[in-house]
Design a protein around this nucleic acid. Sequence first.
DNA 1: TACCGATGTCAACGCTTGTTGGCCTACGAT
DNA 2: ATCGTAGGCCAACAAGCGTTGACATCGGTA
Lengths: 188, 188
Amino acid sequence: MGTETPRRSDPTRAAILAAARDRFAADGYERATIRAIAADAGIDPAMVMRYYGSKDRLFAAAAEFDLRLPDLSELPAGRYGEVLVHHFLTRWESDGTFLALLRAAATNEAARQRMLDVFAGQVAPVVAKVCPDPAHAAERAGLVATQMMGLAVCRYVLRLPPIAAMPADTVVAWLRPTIERYLSAPRP
Amino acid sequence: MGTETPRRSDPTRAAILAAARDRFAADGYERATIRAIAADAGIDPAMVMRYYGSKDRLFAAAAEFDLRLPDLSELPAGRYGEVLVHHFLTRWESDGTFLALLRAAATNEAARQRMLDVFAGQVAPVVAKVCPDPAHAAERAGLVATQMMGLAVCRYVLRLPPIAAMPADTVVAWLRPTIERYLSAPRP
DNA sequence: TACCGATGTCAACGCTTGTTGGCCTACGAT
DNA sequence: ATCGTAGGCCAACAAGCGTTGACATCGGTA
């Protein structure tokens, strides 16, 4: 129990999942077709159905995402923003899953729900551990989300020239005080 | 010249455009079908084609958007952020066109380009007039965009509970210093 | 070697989509 | 009153979609 018995089809399953992530990230949910994903993976569309059941379930499998947020409570106050912004940037750029989720969330209800789950299950708890008023942690986490999601949208989805071209260090330097304030400043 | 001769079909054209905006805003570009738009407008799908030629051109007509940004240079420095955030919120909520554009921009190239045009043609010039270093106005405008687009995504697209439920005044109070800093603070 | 389940291919289904052309109707000018 | 034209509807097309079932093929086991 616990460890799955390896199957001979595991490489194929992995190829499908990788192709699905790329297509969902590039095209969104509806424009990414099973046929195109299968072609990228070099197999027949029917295999996708056999191994994942439906397009919905394929997306659910491909959009499993872990932000791997660090524990901020070990850090000195004042460095939260810097660490958070830098972490988001590197995490996003090392794994296309988040972009797939973000693009799909604009028009797909399941993707939107998954995004809310990531917020409630991963972002909010980390914020709650370091903010001065845990009763209002969700509000502060939401504010952090507005800034970080906006960065993702402008940099990766819209590819707004000044933001897409900005070096990561400069992004961190600009956004750091914003995140810091949302986490720690007295509520207005 | 200048004034178009009124046509007997103008009410129908307007009904199509209104229905198109609603559908594009609710469903995005690909899931909003010509048939559904025509049904909402109470006419035949063929009429949409006759008056707008294609789905692409219908979207182009429906996604014409003017932010109607005020001239900030008449204001005392220090009130830019407050006025800007409040203006965005009321403008977005009074006209579904922006939401249609935002949803569609996630997966539709024409919508994305239109979004970049709104940025370059409407946001950047206003920012350039009030920021201390016009040579870097685009960078500052881009930063403002990250915060405002993130607000729009979290509040209207994802409907993130803490942000969707937050009163407009509270949003303004929280985001005001962020916008102010992106507009005026020395570059890092 | 003979077998059986897992792996993979192929062709087709039913459905929805954007788009087109033909036909009917009603209005406004002559 | 008549005629041309613009407004509107209906039926159909070709294409693409997710999905399905029947058939081939390979690999480990008895």
